[in-house]
Design a protein around this nucleic acid. Structure first.
Lengths: 347, 347
DNA sequence: CTGTTAGCGCTTTCAG
DNA sequence: CTGAAAGCGCTAACAG
């Protein structure tokens, strides 16, 4: 039940050399002869030595750890993003410490403090729905900790971002609905404070214009886009907006809520009302095939964000110019006539 | 761009007192007078002091961090589990460092080493499909790091476990199919090496017996239960097992794969073939309502596992007797006649 | 209640 | 190429 306590000093003593040489050998420094390295490695193995990462970190003032803050892990988009982050970090020898803001700014602020206090080497962040500015990120900036925002972001210049082209995706989605014959397309919109939802709204609006359809403000239903909100919106549509023949939802959660409600009322999807939702790719495989989705590809965004962050970390102390990477979304359309569903790898 | 370097010595110097007093005050020790505490806190605030967690950790040989190893984050069951873990850890002042084994034993072994090297206070683990023993966990045991296994486990005594009653869940699921009139129930089975899948298989088999139905070995289809496997199994059933009128899948991923394949062939679910799959609760809200599921409630398991782990951590150095917590699963049955789908909170 | 002292285990000058 | 020595920032005896 004892902690395994063999230190570099123990192995130095056993070999009658100095601990600094041991340290160098274990770090594979070129300034130690191959022969002594071999002896040291062998001894270390034999004695079951394990580097005390804490001490090493303290001395180097570096933790080899990336901090990640996202609103909620169990949302598929974010868990895929984390999957990408974790894999990329792992490949590059970084650990990941992961936290959820649960959409609360206060929690997010605390988490940034914790991460800074834990001396993470960098932070990847997807801001909460309550976050309207980057004031709480000052702390990270002051401590020289590089940060990459992904998916959700405020529109302040000078930051690293990995984003989806929300405008284009929404434009395409709406355009798709029009091409399917929809003429009165409702929009389930998210909080307009978030740039992301603003962009999705704009894409919707301009696709209507481009197709010569009038923008009807009463067809825009605002909410936080939870499943319940989607169901409520669907109910509202059935009861008060009979002309609606298509729905563009700013996320998949609300889209599913709406779809299930409508199906419960025996409305045929997409024949009577067509639905398109923004969504993370693989999710769609468990979503009804009747639902067309705009692929958010969280895993790819996670990978890109991590690569960018590591680039910035390695650039220290001379910081690189901030970068913004914009991914183009793809429309994924499936239906029950398809022979085989899109397969995703056990996710 | 400079690291913020105010230490307890700086604030001690500014106040012309000793750094140890500062340390005590900042840890709110009762052995410092309220008045000096106040002065110290004020000064700390003023100078923008931030405790160096690394140094503190090194000194205390404790990191206030829990390590989590799961097969794959983006699987909904695991991301919900992590959600529960993270929330419980956060409430108790712990950080979470999270890693994926990607179902590889080698990776899992490496990760345990990394976590031990990082001096995590405890480990929560759901073993990979390749893991057949706990040999690689010796390292954690030797270093006195408590461990809790959840969901997937080997059947070796003396460990902390948080499990689902897989046997009962499978029994109930199969029983349910029989009560719906199914007489030839196929079973999509997972790797029999994993206790979990063995139990699910046993529940299936004994439910058949109890209902006076013969166990037909050729109706058991083995695979790794990916979506593709489910689709393949469904194809096999259509082509070579026409008598099948019900499917019990050992997980939801394969169940969805099978269901979507069958729907593509215009088979009515559940009228022509009924399907029940083991699944994490909230997932079911995005799964077709025709699919009945056995609720795995990942978040609850995550919470329980973390609570148990923290209990064990706090019990050090005298370890508590290992505990096994077994959750009873519930059958969740929905259908399109239901007025409203099960709502889940934006997950 | 506060100060003194001695490290936690490692890395990194600086000498030789 | 290796050794000696100092110290990262904090905590925890032990005195007083």
């Amino acid at each position: 039940m004892q902690t395994n306590n063999v230190t570099i000093h123990d192995i130095a003593a056993a070999l009658k050399i100095d601990s600094s040489t041991v340290s160098r050998a274990l770090n594979n420094s070129p300034r130690v002869t191959q022969k002594t390295k071999q002896r040291i490695w062998a001894k270390a193995q034999e004695m079951g030595y394990q580097r005390n990462v804490l001490a090493s970190n303290l001395r180097k003032n570096k933790t080899n750890t990336i901090g990640v803050i996202i609103p909620r892990i169990s949302r598929f988009f974010f868990s895929s993003a984390i999957e990408g982050i974790e894999e990329t970090a792992f490949e590059n020898g970084y650990n990941v410490i992961m936290c959820q803001s649960l959409e609360k700014l206060e929690r997010e602020t605390n988490l940034v403090q914790t991460l800074v206090a834990n001396r993470v080497d960098g932070i990847i962040l997807s801001i909460s729905m309550e976050t309207l500015d980057y004031e709480h990120m000052e702390l990270a900036r002051k401590n020289g900790i590089p940060t990459v925002f992904f998916d959700r972001h405020c529109d302040i210049p000078g930051n690293n971002n990995v984003l989806l082209n929300d405008y284009q995706g929404s434009f395409d989605a709406t355009d798709h609905l029009v091409s399917q014959g929809c003429r009165n397309i409702a929009h389930l919109a998210g909080p307009r404070d978030l740039k992301l939802y603003q962009n999705r709204f704009n894409g919707y609006k301009e696709a209507l214009e481009k197709n010569g359809l009038p923008f009807q403000p009463d067809l825009v239903i605002d909410s936080n886009l939870m499943e319940e909100d989607g169901a409520n919106a669907a109910q509202k549509i059935l009861e008060t907006l009979p002309q609606v023949d298509g729905i563009f939802s700013a996320n998949d959660v609300a889209a599913v809520g709406a779809m299930q409600f409508l199906k419960g009322k025996n409305i045929k999807i997409p024949d009577e009302i067509a639905i398109v939702g923004f969504s993370n790719g693989p999710t769609s495989s468990v979503i009804d095939p009747a639902l067309t989705t705009v692929d958010q590809s969280g895993k790819k965004m996670g990978r890109l964000a991590t690569e960018l962050l590591i680039k910035q970390i390695n650039a220290k102390p001379i910081p690189l110019a901030p970068e913004t990477i914009i991914l183009e979304p793809t429309l994924i359309q499936r239906d029950s006539t398809q022979k085989k569903p899109t397969i995703h790898p056990n996710t």
